[in-house]
Design a protein around this nucleic acid. Structure first.
Lengths: 339, 339
DNA sequence: TTGTACGCGTTATCAG
DNA sequence: CTGATAACGCGTACAA
């Protein structure tokens, strides 16, 4: 007989086991764990001793059911394979962990319908709050979230016109700023390789930023030559070839993200084009790839980690009734060699 | 009065609400959702109609409590900022999603104690199974997992000597193979930049692989000059400088991963050393960085995505009582320019 | 095939 | 400060 453990079976100990072992009620044990200062120091000691001895740890499903709170926060991102999301999510998770919250992750693969499904799944799983990327989604999705009263935060984008809680940056303004510099250097034929602008509002805003700058500089924005493609180095290469096949090829190719830009870089090398002498190339995001690339990329630096941290804080505040404000994070142009 | 919805309040509808709306018992509704073929097609229709009408979705906490299964699988990785884990985890999540499982993510920051804490957290949260990276952890952790009967899988490593369920590759053998080729090219002074070998068994095995090869080639493994440092390009640079400061510097620097190797590459460039003429450099993992680097890296390719997929399958099988086998994935040497 | 009723492990209310 | 005890929403024997 093992006298050191009085859980009858080899089962996982429950609150009741601890209560019995400590000679108190389950209510008291629960209080020791959740409201430590409503309990005598003496009973606290007795209870904690029993907790340790039995190796008790609370069943979160039961707790969630009773308290109607899971201490779990969901994040739905396009894909973790994109370093910007991996990095931000890592910071997000670390921050949550400090507050005893756990992260539930789902990915949308940049597909609107899949995102909607994942939102339903994560809320059904009891996520107390949700981190979503960008603003773009069907109204019915927002309605669902509101009806369910799930605190939701939009990250990786910040639109001053929208009142929704967000922690991000102004994609349009950032790209506008970069385009200003590009045009100040005399470029007039501008090409753009972008992610899909239909369902990806960050991509859309970035492209608009270029057009804004063109207009401001007295150029016709409709002369912007755009190729849309999905996220990969190879697709960046293909798009670059397409752009340069034009009789009057662009003198600068502004890419919607660093990965596409690296593809462009590679294609340029294959075509024996010097960068930036023959054609300039710019990126966006400033992931590691940007600085390591054969021709270090001029790009827009985005503070992904801080974004993740702030997003976690905001959501946590919201859950504690603190009414957080949206946060616009600054971006910065990192001028390297590709332009 | 809203006749289309008979949930009394604006609350989230429950099984009971659906049952009432469909004029059946809660048991029947539950069956419709979980055991569809134990129910008449007619009642099924009635019930599903009510489900749709009320917008019902099950409360997973309650379900978990009652069924003692959460359909949630936990993964604890060092960090998502490391592309190898981000990629594998993405594939892992996609695979889980296909089977209706959700992913709970926690990170250990390469810290053994933090990993232990996260294991406790995720099991308390009711993870049905766990994905862990590498074999190295305290015996008490494995004991805990066994006592709790949590199916656990080790990934990113495969040791034929250990019977534990694993989906990974033989780090030691892979590095051995690369070292063989390096030495066949005549290198005798070998340097190594490695991650911490104390608590990181993948790093340890890779270093051992080099030593194995040295012994096999008649070289004294104790002449291997090792520098251990943590994961970052900057640390790779520092370590490279350290290695090359030696009076008889190595002619080849074998790095434990691509990120450190890129750091070495950068340091070499800063020292005006040509790669591979003056000093050869190798990596491990074959992340994007490896092929994009100024001097494309010779490295060991690892099928990270497939590893994630297979890991998910194995864990899912285990949960369904299918007794999966461990899987050793092949790696391949990708010979590029850095050696 | 369907319904009844109990139990899952906690939290929280209300007396004591 | 502490102890009963009723929810919480669902799964599942067992009975019909």
């Amino acid at each position: 007989m093992d006298e050191t453990k009085n859980t009858p079976t080899g089962q996982v100990p429950t609150l009741a086991d601890v209560a019995q072992a400590a000679g108190v009620s389950t209510a008291t044990v629960s209080r020791c764990l959740n409201l430590p200062d409503q309990v005598t120091e003496k009973t606290m000691r007795r209870v904690m001793e029993a907790v340790d001895r039995l190796g008790y740890s609370p069943n979160y499903s039961a707790r969630a059911l009773a308290a109607n709170r899971t201490n779990t926060i969901g994040a739905i991102i396009p894909t973790m394979e994109n370093a910007i999301f991996a990095r931000g999510l890592q910071a997000f998770q670390e921050e949550l962990h400090q507050s005893g919250c756990t992260l539930l992750v789902a990915s949308s693969s940049y597909e609107e319908d899949l995102e909607e499904e994942q939102i339903k799944t994560l809320t059904a799983r009891g996520a107390d709050a949700l981190l979503l990327i960008g603003y773009h989604r069907k109204p019915r999705v927002y309605e669902f979230l509101e009806k369910r009263k799930i605190p939701t935060l939009v990250a990786w984008a910040f639109d001053p016109e929208v009142s929704r809680l967000a922690v991000g940056f102004n994609n349009r303004a950032a790209m506008h700023e970069l385009a200003d510099i590009v045009m100040a250097a005399g470029h007039k034929q501008i090409g753009c390789i972008s992610a899909d602008t239909l369902s990806n509002d960050r991509a859309r805003e970035r492209a608009l930023g270029i057009r804004d700058a063109m207009s401001a500089a007295g150029l016709d924005p409709s002369t912007l030559r755009m190729v849309e493609t999905t996220y990969s180095i190879e697709n960046g290469e293909t798009a670059f070839h397409e752009l340069m096949a034009h009789p009057e090829p662009p003198t600068v190719v502004m890419c919607g993200n660093d990965v596409l830009a690296v593809g462009a870089l590679r294609a340029a090398a294959a075509m024996n084009l010097r960068v930036p002498e023959d054609v300039a190339i710019t990126g966006f995001d400033d992931i590691e790839l940007a600085s390591v690339a054969p021709v270090p990329l001029t790009t827009v630096h985005v503070p992904h980690r801080r974004m993740g941290q702030f997003a976690a804080q905001a959501l946590l505040d919201e859950l504690n009734g603190k009414k957080p404000d949206s946060i616009e994070l600054p971006t910065a142009i990192y001028r390297r060699s590709s332009f």
